[in-house]
Simulated assay, not measured.
Amino acid sequence: MTSNYRQDSWEKGAQFENYVEHILFPSEYYELLYKTSDFKQNSERYVKASLKPDFQFKCLLTGFVFYVEAKYRTKPYLNEYELLSEQQFESFPSIQENESPVFVAFGYGGLASNPDYVSFFPLQKIINRKLSPELVVIYKIDKGLYPSKELQPFNKALNNERFNNNQEISKDKVEKEFVAPQKAKWKFHNIFYIIAAAVVFSLTVFLLTKPSISSQPIKDKLVKTLSTYYSSSDKSQIERLPNFLSKKNVNWYGQKDMTLGEIITAAKEYNKTYPYRISEVDWNSLIVVEDKKGYYASYTMLFKSKKTEEEQYTTYDLKLLTFWDSNLKLTSITESIQ
């Protein structure tokens, strides 16, 4: 009987894990970096990595890496829900400190494959491993795609995947490896290139309107437009800028409502200082998502610049998140160093 109960418990757990993986964090928006071993594997030979939370995801929009432990309960026992086992309650804080943030997706009621309710807890909010239904419901979320904007408060520099190496992170190390490169990138980054990548990135609208992956023809048009833009940018053909930008003011790098005149002035000044530039887009990384007002596009690229012909190029490995209006004109941008 104990064996059958354990098997049934694992099956329900697997069903809810499937719900978490494909409904809350689908592959269109979250990359699956790690998944724990299943019941069959662990019953034959236990995998030590199974001590980790069930999943590790990476948000495709922000690059934020995090763990998720999936738990399902049909109903409370003695007016309490068990969110974590004793072992998990002891070990997860260390995983969060040394690797990446940990969250608990908790389904309750209904079926494991389609629970009545789902709550989502940051590990630091779980003071006790067992909570009353009244406390569990406080963290209730909508049943569907989990908005990445809700993860932003936990997306700190120390959680950037560049630092997820189990090494001690000091203030000096953060300044040297994260803050300083960001400042250097801003100083040397091709403003002309920034404009070209320009895009309206409204994460809230993106998630609430439930966009869909765009058709291949639109993607092909964006590839052609971006290719032409970067070719013009690298050749300092500033007179071609109006062909790529929205007629409305452009938002980029947190600077709102930049006029075309302001952008052209900045581009001219930059090109005088850094006349040598090379833009290399990884077209295989391009993802295009359709929205009511246009198209979101994300891609990675190598950008190189230098002041004189004799110098060595400074190279930046970048990920861009962009938005194009319905006429395929650029309107705003966010980016991050990979």
Score class of each variant (00 low, 15 high):
205 V>A: 12
195 I>D: 05
79 N>R: 13
330 L>R: 13
37 S>W: 11
79 N>F: 03
33 L>F: 07
193 Y>N: 14
43 S>V: 10
193 Y>S: 14
65 V>A: 04
240 R>L: 12
137 V>K: 15
252 W>S: 10
175 E>P: 01
306 K>I: 04
235 K>H: 08
123 L>Q: 00
313 Y>A: 06
217 P>I: 15
187 K>N: 10
301 M>N: 05
102 V>P: 00
50 S>Y: 02
144 G>D: 00
106 F>A: 00
99 E>Y: 09
312 Q>H: 08
139 Y>A: 07
187 K>M: 12
14 A>S: 12
85 S>C: 06
172 D>S: 13
302 L>P: 03
47 V>L: 12
224 K>H: 05
216 Q>M: 11
280 E>M: 06
193 Y>V: 07
11 E>K: 15
60 L>Y: 02
147 P>C: 05
227 S>P: 03
123 L>T: 02
170 S>E: 05
108 Y>P: 00
262 E>Y: 07
252 W>I: 13
90 E>C: 10
194 I>W: 07
191 I>K: 15
304 K>F: 00
149 K>M: 02
298 S>Q: 08
199 V>N: 13
288 V>H: 03
324 W>C: 02
261 G>M: 08
28 E>N: 15
38 D>Q: 12
238 I>V: 09
118 V>H: 00
112 A>E: 01
131 L>Q: 06
95 I>L: 11
43 S>K: 15
226 L>F: 15
20 V>Q: 03
134 E>T: 12
151 L>E: 00
118 V>I: 07
295 Y>A: 04
334 T>Y: 06
274 Y>A: 10
304 K>S: 04
137 V>N: 12
304 K>C: 03
103 F>L: 07
42 N>D: 13
116 D>M: 14
86 E>G: 14
53 P>E: 04
194 I>S: 09
290 E>I: 05
71 K>I: 05
177 E>M: 10
27 S>K: 15
194 I>F: 10
310 E>C: 05
159 N>L: 02
268 K>T: 03
97 E>Q: 15
315 T>L: 10
314 T>Q: 13
91 S>M: 10
310 E>Q: 10
266 A>E: 12
149 K>P: 00
114 N>D: 12
206 F>M: 12
288 V>E: 01
81 Y>G: 08
60 L>K: 13
9 S>Q: 11
112 A>D: 00
143 K>W: 06
17 E>S: 10
225 T>W: 03
281 V>K: 06
